[in-house]
Design a protein around this nucleic acid. Structure first.
Lengths: 348, 348
DNA sequence: AGGTGAATTGTTAGCGCTCACAATGACCCC
DNA sequence: GGGGTCATTGTGAGCGCTAACAATTCACCT
């Protein structure tokens, strides 16, 4: 006999039907201890009957908590950002928070600040910014918002709390793998200059070579796209004649372009040139040949970021937890030779 | 001389500083016409000075509008869903709405209903569900929520408003292209049975063949992943010896697996077997060989869905706009022969 | 001067909920 | 039997905003 109503029922309506005060209804909903079992049942029945749902705005107003977090992301059709976004959302939901997302095509300082304003209007209690570009993060450091902001994938060091995978370590893994397989020299196709991750991967590559007593060769640059990898691949193919045998590419998509360029130039992988990527996107296993690459633990990134943000929101402590780095993992496939002691890769 | 305050300033604080009533502040913020220029300036100065921001919860409570939409998505690391999500979010933001997202790893009836409950708790005014699986949409038809729900990528016909790309037309384009290039027969590697898009693509394929007087061969099935494409590709390679010359694969990622299986079996593409994919993901241009595929207009999907949802929210009319289908587009690359009249593809 | 209407501003009453506190009653102990 | 405790429930006052209406001011006309 639930009659259709224009206004959804309020707590007072439920209270009236159950013959209690609105506060008792609130207590039942809030799982407060001191409610008689019988009363609780009565209230629950009334709630059920009226199809009652608490009004979130009123609740938020009274408690001063919206239980909403914001996320700013860009390039969400790429595997890395999409995975991070997913992980963040899942972690936040597990903590009972709603997530409002702003996706940007390109992350610029203006757009980032607009996005934060938009989220601020929406009443978020904190924001995670997937901001892998240094310029954006630097700008962020200057702005003031009435809620904490945590960044993902950017370096820390600007005083903004941040979580990231240890890109440097991943690059060491990749470069070390190539050296161990017998290569005398390892080239690098890096990501865009402004990206912290690109810089960290390049630094890891350079350091590993130097530690092995190898002078790092000219570093190439792409923009993460297969297209840019293809162009760089043509350059690499040209050098394959004069001693180039191994390349560490800063992401899998560029590696795809490199593989195509090498193949078109008649350069075999891994016999002539070994290739290592970064990210372990699902497709990389099916490239020609399947790609050796570095896997990142995105779910861990999501959990850590949300944990850090909630710490900032609830603890209110400006110091915040120390920056966290998550360890990546090497996945060896057919685009490189496995490590075989005493054997030179080039003659395998 | 802005002093730090524990509680953020309220409208009343601003009003006091500006020497007006709080209602005048509200009018300035709401861009109401009848405020004297001078008063407006005074108020704006006070707002600026105090760093005042309207409290969204209080606003939502008073207006009964949260200006928040919900989106339920799954498989967001795939290109299609990620693009749709991005387009939705952008379209909603353009209309001044905040978007709360729930991403699901796998879309099941239970998870979908949990997601809608979670969004409902968050006070969304409407939800777009990216629900490409028929079972989920059917379940949705049974549930009642206090807000309208629009689906994307599911068929309509269940009484739930829906927007999608015309998959059937896309499949006709793909299959027709192969027939026009001279192939006598076209095989099909379909997506999972439960997916509406997979069913529509299969139907378009079948209808095109039948219209050309060709008996459709056995249909293979995958699960969208490169792995499943690889397995199906091995089967296809086996049949390449006995007359198979063309395959229409239901998405690009499976096509990647097919290409690899064919290559490993020594079957050349397109000389021995031509392959067409679906989606036009950014990488497909760099496959070996570059993939002929069907491009979908995701931004249009986003705009239409949001427009439909807002129509339902604001118009309140249960009839709602008619289901909208968006036209896809064929992108021809090297994995197929272009159409050359009078020439048999197999001898090209 | 008095009246009319428009422009501008202030006043009041909620929106639906939670919090702090008061009130009630049951029970127990000396 | 009075006073204490505990469990349970109700009351009242906001949270910060907008909407409706009332009040004021001012320009302009007859």
């Amino acid at each position: 006999m639930t009659q259709a109503q224009l206004r959804p029922p309020t707590m007072a309506d439920v209270a009236r039907l159950a013959g209690v005060s609105h506060q008792t209804v609130s207590r039942v909903l809030g799982n407060h201890p001191n409610v008689r079992q019988e009363t609780r049942a009565k209230v629950l029945r009334a709630i059920e009957e009226m199809g009652y749902r608490r009004n979130s705005s009123a609740r938020a107003l009274a408690t001063r908590r919206t239980r909403t977090l914001g996320v700013v992301a860009s390039d969400t059709t790429l595997y890395g950002p999409a995975s991070t976004l997913f992980a963040l959302e899942e972690a936040a939901r597990a903590e009972g928070y709603l997530v409002s997302t702003v996706s940007l095509r390109r992350l610029t300082v203006d757009k980032l600040s607009e996005a934060l304003d938009h989220l601020s209007e929406g009443g978020v209690e904190g924001v995670v910014a997937i901001a892998p570009q240094r310029s954006a993060v630097e700008a962020l450091a200057g702005l003031r918002y009435p809620f904490p902001v945590v960044t993902v994938g950017s370096g820390s060091g600007l005083g903004i709390p941040s979580v990231c995978v240890d890109q440097y370590a991943g690059a060491c893994l990749a470069t070390g793998h190539l050296l161990a397989a017998g290569h005398r020299q390892v080239w690098h196709l890096a990501g865009p200059e402004d990206w912290q991750e690109a810089a960290d991967r390049a630094a890891g590559w350079r350091a590993t070579l130097e530690a092995a007593g190898v002078e790092p060769p000219l570093m190439l640059r792409g923009d993460w796209s297969p297209q840019s990898g293809y162009r760089a691949g043509q350059e690499l193919a040209r050098r394959a004649g004069s001693g180039l045998t191994a390349v560490f590419v800063a992401n899998d998509q560029m590696a795809l372009g490199v593989l195509r360029a090498l193949r078109e130039a008649g350069v075999r992988t891994p016999e002539d040139v070994a290739v290592v990527g970064f990210d372990d996107i699902p497709e990389s296993e099916f490239y020609a040949p399947p790609l050796t690459t570095v896997r990142q633990d995105f779910p861990a990134v999501g959990r850590q970021s949300i944990a850090m943000l909630l710490g900032l929101i609830e603890g209110c402590g400006p110091p915040g937890p120390a920056p966290i780095a998550i360890e990546p993992q090497l996945v060896v496939r057919a685009s490189t030779f496995p490590y075989t002691p005493g054997q030179d890769a080039r003659t395998a």
